[in-house]
């Protein structure tokens, strides 16, 4: 699944938030807390489910963040957040997720979409339709 949002702000504004692994609970609704240790991040969902993740890519030049949820329920998982500079003072934030079982991509992707939709309010910027 893939979702995107066009924001009326320079890419660094968005990247400072979505590229910082410890800031996830600030903008992702339904994540109460997270602990980052080295290349792992353990999130706690609002339902009380701990979910350890491997942080694969945090590339500030490319503005790419990738992580893999590391629980047995997922046979495979890869989520990628890209912040694209549109060179007009705006940016495009793209979240994509692949998972096996595929059902889980729907669950993660649905939540990611809600998180992206929350970004304008959180950042204090406007979404460009």
């Amino acid at each position: 699944m893939r979702f995107a949002i066009h924001l009326d702000c320079p890419p660094d504004i968005a990247w400072d938030v979505v590229g910082a692994p410890e800031r996830l609970p600030e903008w992702w609704l339904g994540i109460d807390s997270c602990v980052v240790e080295g290349n792992t991040r353990t999130i706690m969902t609002r339902s009380g489910l701990p979910m350890p993740e491997l942080l694969l890519t945090i590339d500030g030049n490319l503005r790419r963040f990738q992580y893999r949820i590391d629980v047995p329920m997922f046979a495979e998982h890869l989520s990628t957040i890209d912040v694209h500079d549109l060179h007009d003072g705006t940016c495009l934030v793209v979240y994509s997720v692949d998972a096996e079982p595929a059902v889980l991509a729907l669950v993660i992707g649905g939540a990611a979409r809600a998180a992206l939709n929350h970004l304008p309010e959180f950042l204090g910027v406007t979404e460009i339709p």
Partner: peptide, 13 residues
């Protein structure tokens, strides 16, 4: 939806 580990939906939360 029922599948909601993040309890995003008020029915579940």
């Amino acid at each position: 939806p029922y599948f909601d580990p993040f309890l995003r939906f008020e029915e579940n939360a």
